[in-house]
Amino acid sequence: MYSGGGVTKEISYEDLKALVGKSQNLFLVDVRTKDEVDKGRIPGSVHIPVDTVEAAFKMEPEDFKAKYGVTKPPLDAPELVFHCQVGRRGGVATSKANELGYVNARNYAGAYREWSEKEGK
């Protein structure tokens, strides 16, 4: 499954929709600003703004849990997904996570814009 060349792995709306609410392993990170998140979010997502992703995923697990209220995913987390509003920041965050050793990190390229359109919100 290695894509080589540092190409960001992506996940489709359909695949993400299948995981949301059904998978215990899904760790969905919303990297948008607080203002954007306040207008609507994907259920179960954790808000970690894009400019803090690297620092967050370098934290000790107990510090991560204290700050975000959830258990820090392991490096081999099978379903680690990042998203933003239109796709670019999610890609940046996914690349950062890959660099830190999160081998399965993926970007939901359709982002919140596509999610909200398909969910009719």
Rank of each mutant, 00 (worst) to 15 (best):
V86N: 03
A111T: 03
A55K: 12
D63M: 08
L100Y: 05
V29A: 04
Y112P: 00
H47C: 07
D76S: 07
R113L: 09
V7I: 13
A55Y: 03
E114S: 02
P78W: 02
L19S: 03
G44W: 12
S45I: 07
R106L: 06
K39C: 12
G5D: 11
Y13I: 06
E14Q: 13
P74N: 07
D63N: 14
I48R: 08
G21Y: 09
V37Q: 10
S12V: 11
A77P: 00
P43N: 11
K17A: 14
D51Q: 13
G90K: 01
L75Y: 07
A97M: 04
K22A: 15
A105V: 06
D51R: 13
S116H: 09
T94P: 01
G120K: 15
C84M: 06
E99Y: 03
D15R: 11
L80Q: 12
P74V: 03
P43C: 06
A55T: 12
N98F: 05
F57G: 01
G90H: 00
N107H: 07
V37I: 14
S116L: 04
L100T: 02
E99K: 15
Q85C: 00
T8Q: 11
G4Y: 12
K17Y: 10
V92I: 14
R89W: 01
Y2K: 11
D15N: 14
T8M: 14
P61I: 08
E54W: 08
V31K: 10
I48N: 08
P43K: 12
T52E: 15
G87H: 02
A109F: 03
V7Q: 09
W115S: 02
K72F: 02
Q24K: 15
K9R: 15
V46D: 06
R89N: 08
T94A: 08
N107Y: 10
I42G: 04
S23R: 11
G5C: 05
D15A: 08
G101C: 02
K96G: 00
P73M: 02
K72D: 02
K96F: 09
A105R: 02
S116I: 12
V20M: 06
F27H: 14
V20Q: 07
D15C: 01
N104R: 08
H83W: 08
G87A: 02
E60M: 12
K72G: 00
W115V: 04
D35K: 13
D30R: 10
Y2L: 12
F82L: 14
S23V: 11
V7S: 11
K72I: 01
R106I: 00
N98E: 12
G91F: 03
V86R: 13
R41K: 15
C84H: 04
K58G: 00
F82Y: 13
E60C: 00
N107K: 10
E62R: 09
A55H: 05
Y102G: 02
I42W: 05
S23M: 11
E119R: 09
A18M: 06
K39I: 11
M1H: 09
F64L: 06
D15F: 01
S95K: 15
G69E: 06
K65T: 05
H83P: 04
D38W: 05
K96Q: 14
A55I: 08
V7R: 13
D38C: 10
W115R: 01
K39F: 07
P61G: 01
D51N: 14
P78E: 10
V86P: 00
G120R: 14
P78L: 04
